[in-house]
Amino acid sequence: MSERLKVSSNPHIRSKVTTHGIMAAVVLALLPAAGFGIYNFGVKAAILLGVSVASTVGAEFLYGLLVKKTTVTDLSAVVTGMLLGMNLPVNAPWWVAALGGIFAIIVVKMLFGGLGQNFMNPALAARCFLLISFPAIMTDFNCDAYSGATPLAMLKAGETVNVTDMIIGNVAGTIGETSMIAIIIGACFLILLGIIDLRIPGSYIVSFVVFVLLFGGHGFDLQYLSAQLAGGGLMLGAFFMATDYVTRPITIKGQYVFGIFLGIMTGVFRIFGPSAEGVSYAIILGNLVTPLIEKMTMPTAFGKGGKCYVKK
């Protein structure tokens, strides 16, 4: 061992932050939104969430058996399963949730090397996989409580929407995305624990608002703006999926760039795209450019280049 790298003898100080602890906190933070989804959509939503979590955990466990390595105890599969379930419409049959869970864990996460190596958020990649494969099932939001289109689709068609209902969550949509309040409660919990910070969600939401102001075609219309903010998967995506440790940039400057990129892409998809939704595609596109953003924003090491302040 080199003289310069002195490693003292044990005991070493250990941080109390573990993957298991972080994931458990995220699960807790997701509970309000998931709970509201179950209250809102009934027992079918609970079954769907259960199947989704069971399939991700089961897939992780079985893959672990195959490669003789247990990773299921770090709870990351539970988070993936919950996020996936919350991204499904309540009418989806159970096998859609199971297929999505298996795809998320096996194809997106484990084949690339497991937690920390996946280049895309597994839950979102699975949602997009399902959305492309079963467009009819994944956009069918009719249920006992609500019929008809989601608020965003109505907004796109030029109809008026009730913003108060959208903030509370009494609207059609996927299981976990409808209630802005429940999502914000969970997000505050994570921010207070220091697990996520406001860099990505903040720059994401602000840049999205600016984009809608500029190109939305409604000018400064407070009702339209708040409906765009409360509708769809924006809140769930900004606080819980864009902040995924694995697939966001690690540099601080890069996280702002990432947030702004997501805001612009979401705006492009929502306003110019054929669909009313755009959060999931925006975030997985952002995941793909993350390595480039990191390369662009890597800070210069002390003593390597940069400005020279010594007078010659």
């Binding site: 297929l99 996989f129 492309i132 494969s133 079963f134 467009p135 099932i137």
Partner: peptide
């Protein structure tokens, strides 16, 4: 069986 559309894309 419901066809998984992504496979023909």
């Amino acid at each position: 069986f419901t066809p998984i559309g992504i496979f023909v894309l």
